[in-house]
Measured scan of single mutants.
Amino acid sequence: MDVFMKGLSKAKEGVVAAAEKTKQGVAEAAGKTKEGVLYVGSKTKEGVVHGVATVAEKTKEQVTNVGGAVVTGVTAVAQKTVEGAGSIAAATGFVKKDQLGKNEEGAPQEGILEDMPVDPDNEAYEMPSEEGYQDYEPEA
């Protein structure tokens, strides 16, 4: 019985440690998101679009440190934060509304985080759909 109880105690310690790591990862992701939003706020009209992409990228980098179902929630929060940063930029006159959601080359930025393969159960990952990809044929 002692062996059984000791095993359960060790398992509990492992769960607590994993929860603490997840909590730490979420806190880091939130900190990076805040950094990115402050970065966007300090940019001029020309830099705002690039700044919004930076927020998304920093958040995406930190999301990889967070495991399990938390990833889905962090990704949703990050996307809403990026959308909010863009709205703030438009409201303050840093950028025109028609410039939001495009990178410096004018290509749409939507789907940055949505296409990231995420499995809350950590069982399997699927690649994003290939609808947006084109076949590449090298020139002879």
Rank of each mutant, 00 (worst) to 15 (best):
L113T: 09
H50Y: 14
E114D: 15
A27G: 04
E130Q: 11
V3S: 04
Y136M: 09
D135Q: 09
I112Y: 05
E13M: 11
D2H: 08
V74A: 09
K21W: 08
Q134L: 10
G106T: 06
K58P: 01
S42E: 13
K12L: 14
K12N: 01
A91D: 04
E110N: 09
D119C: 12
Q99A: 13
Q134V: 04
K23Q: 07
E20H: 14
L100E: 09
M127E: 14
F94R: 01
F4Y: 01
A56V: 13
F4T: 00
A76M: 05
D2C: 04
V55L: 15
A19W: 14
V52F: 15
A17L: 05
T33L: 08
T75E: 03
Q62E: 03
G67V: 10
G36S: 14
D121F: 14
G106W: 13
D2L: 15
A56D: 00
E83C: 04
V70P: 01
M1G: 00
T92N: 07
A78G: 05
Y136I: 09
K80A: 11
G51Q: 09
L8V: 04
T92P: 04
E123Y: 11
K21P: 00
Y125M: 03
A78F: 15
V82M: 11
Y136L: 09
A29L: 08
D135R: 06
E61F: 02
E123F: 08
P128F: 02
T44R: 01
G25Q: 15
V40R: 01
V40I: 11
D119G: 08
K6I: 11
K12H: 13
Y125E: 06
T81Q: 02
E130M: 08
S9A: 04
E35M: 14
A124V: 13
Q134N: 08
A107T: 08
G93S: 06
P128W: 08
Y125I: 13
K80C: 05
A91Y: 13
K10A: 10
M116E: 13
E57G: 03
A124G: 09
V52K: 01
K96G: 13
K21E: 00
T92Y: 15
V66L: 11
S87Q: 15
E123S: 10
T75Q: 13
Q134K: 13
V82P: 02
K10S: 05
S9W: 15
K6P: 00
K6C: 02
Q24F: 15
V63Y: 11
E130C: 07
T33A: 05
A85H: 03
Q134H: 04
S9N: 15
T44Y: 15
A78L: 13
G25H: 15
V26Q: 00
S87F: 13
G51R: 08
L8Q: 00
E139T: 03
E13F: 13
E139G: 06
S129R: 04
T44L: 10
A78Q: 03
G7M: 07
V71R: 09
V118W: 05
E35G: 04
S9F: 11
K102G: 04
G84W: 10
T92M: 04
N65R: 13
K45Y: 13
K34Y: 14
V118Q: 02
Q79K: 10
A11P: 00
V82K: 07
A30D: 00
P108F: 12
G68L: 12
A11N: 00
D119R: 01
S9E: 14
G93W: 10
P108V: 08
E123G: 10
K45D: 00
A56G: 04
E105M: 10
V66S: 01
V37F: 14
K34H: 04
E131Y: 12
G25K: 15
T59A: 11
G106L: 05
G7H: 05
A56R: 08
A90C: 14
T44E: 00
F94P: 03
E131P: 09
K80N: 03
T75W: 15
G67F: 05
G86C: 14
K97P: 11
V118D: 10
Y39E: 02
V49K: 13
A27Y: 15
A85N: 02
Y125H: 09
Y125S: 06
F4W: 05
G47P: 01
Q99C: 10
K6G: 01
D98N: 08
A27P: 00
E20Y: 12
V15S: 00
K80I: 06
V74N: 01
T22V: 09
N122L: 05
T54A: 11
Q79N: 07
A11K: 00
G86Q: 14
P120Q: 11
K96R: 07
A30L: 13
Q109L: 05
K6E: 02
P120H: 11
Q62C: 08
A11W: 15
G47V: 11
A140N: 12
A11H: 00
P108Y: 05
V95D: 05
V3W: 02
V37L: 15
E123C: 14
E104W: 05
A89D: 03
A85K: 02
K23D: 00
V77K: 02
Y133C: 08
L38E: 03
A29V: 08
P120T: 11
E57R: 05
Q62Y: 11
V48H: 00
E28M: 09
V95R: 10
G84I: 14
K34R: 06
V3A: 03
V49G: 04
Q109H: 10
Q79T: 07
V48M: 14
S9R: 10
K6N: 08
G84S: 11
V26A: 02
E130Y: 10
L8S: 00
D115W: 06
K6R: 05
V82W: 13
T64D: 04
I112N: 08
I112S: 09
L38G: 02
A19C: 04
T22W: 15
V40Q: 00
K21D: 00
A89V: 14
A78M: 14
P117I: 05
M1A: 00
E20L: 09
K60C: 07
A85P: 03
V49W: 14
E126K: 10
A29M: 13
E139I: 12
L8M: 06
Y133Q: 07
D115A: 13
D2Y: 15
V82T: 06
E28N: 02
T72R: 10
G25C: 08
E114M: 03
V48L: 13
K43P: 00
K80P: 02
V63A: 04
T54R: 15
E137Q: 05
E123H: 10
V49H: 14
K43V: 14
A91H: 11
